[in-house]
Design a protein around this nucleic acid. Structure first.
Lengths: 238, 238
DNA sequence: TCCTGTGAACTCATTCACAGCC
DNA sequence: GGCTGTGAATGAGTTCACAGGA
């Protein structure tokens, strides 16, 4: 076969593909059979031309003069994003944020699936969250080995994040999503993405304040400008 | 006075300034008096040259051949990020994610402060979260008017996010942080940032899967590469 | 000699504008 | 006529390399 694989899709594009997929699922539920790039772009909050460029990474998948088939585009995106075999994820730290995240696992065809939830708190261990029974962190090594998890999600307090990270890496986890407000040190070959909720708020507060300071001068209204997604930091190898 | 204001600081830089500030607070607690850009950069997970460029937006604030004064740099960052008078925020949707977020308010000098938490669930309304009593959503308009909140945080289910957004905008909120997985439509002049937790996981899953497919070939090890932050989408003015 | 501050190169990403097909 | 696919242009942001001061 002549390598029909997705090839090199930019990270920013991958993030948007996930958004398109969600919108398409909604359109399919509404019984729609086709969409134009314009309509899809509006629903996803992006620029139409950018959307088309994103989709071009999958090869031609629309019909000129008509638009995109909702069902087939959805299937294509599902497959591209990892669809068939979803990656097993282990989540450490089942607090409010952790349990909120665990519920996102619900949807199939998302490319990931939580297979274990770990916590230290005896009151939390043994309880059921998102259909899984919370296990003690002591079992981290065993659980990762048994489930062959390759993705770890850290929603612990900052103080223990690095040690949890070290343990995950030691047993072979190579992709980590970190919600703790610390920069994790990892060996090359491990991919860390970071999401910092308080930083998001600080940035918003800064822009808000800055706008008040500026007497609304200088810049007129731009109708709708949208930026990618990256929202995270990366360290280590591809 | 000759406008000594921060001027135009790139958004990506603002996000990192918040991270530096947190690291500096930790260093101050440890009794450190000075840091070099290299050390600070490592702790923040960024490139030293980039850090210096970021700080250059505040004007010279280091000492050549020595480094930065921990205390004075911290104060400078605090002030730049909105320090003195923090922006009042209203949060709508006090579920697990919402209450987790509300706790971030704790720190002073962050540039924002939660002044009200709203929810529809009668079981949640009246309870105390992060030191605030949860109020019914019906009081949204009153609360925003009384607190003069200019920032709204939406952590509701997707179905009601747009209507909550509309109500916030109607009473004058111009900066919104949206955690619901929908693209919010807002009039020009309103700034929306979006954080999508499930997308973060999907991107990580994709990269993880992609790495397994590729026989580790092509690319050698990159030691530590870090990307900015944006983590969000923006719509509206400025 | 140290480390900061910064112009300049470079990489990455978004937007524009139009060619191509239905 | 309408809408997709895409090369070219633009812009933002990061890295490099060195000038400049303690």
């Amino acid at each position: 076969m002549p390598e029909s694989r997705p090839r090199n899709i930019p990270e920013a594009t991958v993030a948007r593909l996930a958004v398109y997929l969600r919108v398409l699922a909604g359109l399919a539920d509404d019984g729609r059979s086709h969409v134009s790039s314009g309509e899809l772009a509006t629903a996803a909050g992006v620029n139409p031309a950018g959307l088309r460029k994103d989709l071009s990474h999958l090869g031609p998948c629309g019909v000129r003069g008509v638009g995109y088939s909702v069902a087939s585009l959805r299937d294509r995106l599902t497959e591209t994003l990892g669809g068939a075999r979803s990656r097993p994820c282990v989540l450490v730290g089942v607090g409010r944020l952790g349990s909120a995240l665990a519920d996102y696992s619900g949807f199939p065809g998302r490319g990931f699936e939580f297979v274990a939830l770990l916590d230290t708190d005896p009151a939390t261990v043994g309880s059921s969250v998102a259909g899984l029974t919370v296990a003690p962190v002591a079992e981290l090594e065993t659980v990762v080995a048994e489930t062959r998890a390759s993705i770890g999600v850290i929603t612990t307090p900052a103080e223990v994040a690095q040690s949890v990270c070290d343990r995950l890496v030691a047993v072979g986890v190579r992709s980590i999503l970190n919600f703790a407000p610390v920069a994790l040190a990892v060996p090359a070959g491990v991919d860390v993405r970071k999401v910092d909720l308080s930083v998001e708020l600080q940035v918003l507060a800064f822009l808000d304040q800055q706008r008040d300071s500026t007497p609304s001068a200088v810049e007129p209204n731009r109708v709708e400008r949208v930026r990618p997604l990256p929202s995270t930091a990366r360290a280590g190898v591809r």
